[in-house]
Write a protein that binds this DNA or RNA. Structure first.
Lengths: 230, 230
DNA sequence: CCGGTCATGTACCAGTTGGTGAGTTAGTTC
DNA sequence: GAACTAACTCACCAACTGGTACATGACCGG
C-alpha cells in the first residue's frame, strides 16, 4: 500500500524488476527492508501486545533503523495494522486451498474441522494477534478496509458442505454455517489462546504432542455428533 | 492480606472492631481504600491490558492517590496479580454454588453447561483478564501461590456427573472431565473473548441478545450429543 | 558521469511512565 | 492529653517512548 519502489506511473521495465543481477544483493532494497520490519514487528506485537511492543526494540531487532519504520509505515499504529493485514491475508490463502468437495458431507465436515485444527495449531502467532486485537475491541480491523472486506473461504466451504448434508437429510437444520464455524473456531482458538492459563490451573498442556490426535478426533466427533443428532 | 488496621497482636476489642459508630464514615479507612484501588485497577487492566493500563490513570480514577497504590500493593505488577487473584476468587465462589446432583447425568451435564454459559456471559471483565494473562503466558498466575493452588469446583462437579453417566452406560468413555470442561470453556470463552474480531469479520455479534437462547441450547446439544454418541 | 530522487543513518526531543523521599494528619492507646 | 503508628499528601525524578529534523549516500536514467 505505501511506498513501493515501482509505484508511480513509472514506465514498466519488463523483466528483472529490482535485482540487477540475480544473486547479487542490493544494499538498498525497499521491499526487503519493508518485509524485514514487518516480520520483526509481527513477532514483537504477537509476543507483547500492542501497548507492550516497543518501536525501539522492533527497530533494534531489524537489520535497519527506527527511522525506516516511520519511513515505510508512518507510525506504531499503522505498522500494527499492516501486521494484522498480512497475518490475515496469509491465513486466508491457506483456507483457500481446502478441497473437500469429493467427500460425502459427514467426512467433509470432519476433514474441514481437522484442517482448521491443523491451521490453528501451526499459527500460534496469528491466534495471539487475534487475541490482542480483541483486547482492543477490533478497532483496527474495523478501520482497515482491507480486513473488513476480506472474504472467508472456510465459511463458504462449510456452507456448501452443510447444504449437501441437508439435502441428504443427514444434518440437523437448526444451525447455519456461521454457527458451526463458531464451534470449530472456538475449540481450535481456545486450545492455543488459553493454553497458558489452562495449563497453569489444570496442569494439562492442551498442545502436548501426545494428546494431539485425541484432541483432533475429539473435535471431529464433537461436530459430527452434533450435526447428525436430530 | 496486607496492612489491616487491627492487625498486629493488638488486644482484641470484642465487638465494634473498626467503625466507631455504625453509619459514621471514617475518613481514613484502609480496607475501603484498598478495595477502591482494586476495583478501579480491575476495570483498567481488563480494559487496556497490563502494558496498556497506566498507574497514573488508575490513581486518577480512584478517590485516593498514586502513592497509595504503592503503599498498599507495592507496584504495578503486584497490583495486577492482586486483581487476578480477586477475579479468580470470585468466579470460584460462583462455581461452588452449582448443584446438579439431583438431576440425571444427561440433564445434569446440560445444566452445568448452561450455568457455565451464564457465568461467562455475565463476567466479560474476567474473560478479558484471562485473555490478557494468556498474552503474558500466564507468568503471573504461575508465580502466584494463591492462584496455582486454587481448586476448581466446576471440574469436580463435572467429574461426578461423568462417573454417574458412565455407570449408567449413557456416556462415551474415551474422554475425561478435563476434556469436557475444555469443550465447554472453549465455547463460552470464545463467545466473549473473540466477540469483536468475529463481529468485525462476519458481521454477527455472538452476544446479541436475540441469539442468546439459540447459542445456549447449541452448547447443551453439542455436549450432550457428543457424550451420548458412542 | 551527472543530477535527482529514493533510501538510510545520526542525533535529538518533548511528553509520559513507573516509582519514591520525606513530611503530615487522623485515630488509637495508655 | 501525650505519644505513637497507620494512613495519607505532595513534590519530584530518572528512564523510557514514540516520533522527527536533517544530513548523507546509493542507485538509476539519460
Amino acid at each position: 500500500m505505501a511506498a513501493q519502489p515501482s509505484e508511480p506511473g513509472a514506465p514498466v521495465r519488463g523483466d528483472v524488476p529490482d535485482v540487477g543481477v540475480a544473486g547479487v544483493e542490493r544494499i538498498r532494497d525497499a521491499e526487503r527492508t519493508r518485509a524485514d520490519i514487518l516480520a520483526v514487528a509481527t513477532r514483537e506485537f504477537a509476543d507483547r501486545g500492542y501497548a507492550g511492543a516497543r518501536i525501539n526494540e522492533i527497530a533494534d531487532k531489524t537489520s535497519t533503523t527506527k527511522r525506516m519504520i516511520y519511513y515505510y509505515f508512518g507510525g506504531k499504529e499503522q505498522l500494527y495494522v499492516a501486521v494484522l493485514e498480512e497475518a490475515y491475508r496469509r491465513i486466508r490463502v491457506l483456507e483457500q486451498q481446502i478441497d473437500v468437495e469429493h467427500l460425502d458431507p459427514v467426512h467433509a465436515i470432519r476433514e474441514l474441522a481437522g484442517v482448521t485444527f491443523d491451521h490453528h495449531e501451526s499459527h500460534p502467532d496469528f491466534i495471539r494477534l487475534v487475541s490482542i486485537e480483541n483486547i482492543h475491541r477490533a478497532e483496527h480491523i474495523a478501520r482497515s478496509t482491507v480486513l473488513s472486506n476480506l472474504a472467508n473461504p472456510a465459511v463458504d466451504v462449510l456452507g456448501a458442505i452443510l447444504r449437501r448434508g441437508w439435502d441428504a437429510g443427514v444434518f440437523r437444520d437448526d444451525v447455519d454455517a456461521l454457527d458451526v464455524h463458531q464451534v470449530i473456531s472456538a475449540f481450535c482458538v481456545f486450545r492455543t489462546a488459553n493454553r497458558h492459563t489452562f495449563g497453569a490451573i489444570f496442569g494439562r498442556d492442551m498442545l502436548d504432542h501426545a494428546r494431539r490426535e485425541h484432541q483432533r478426533r475429539m473435535l471431529g466427533d464433537l461436530v459430527v455428533a452434533y450435526l447428525t443428532t436430530h
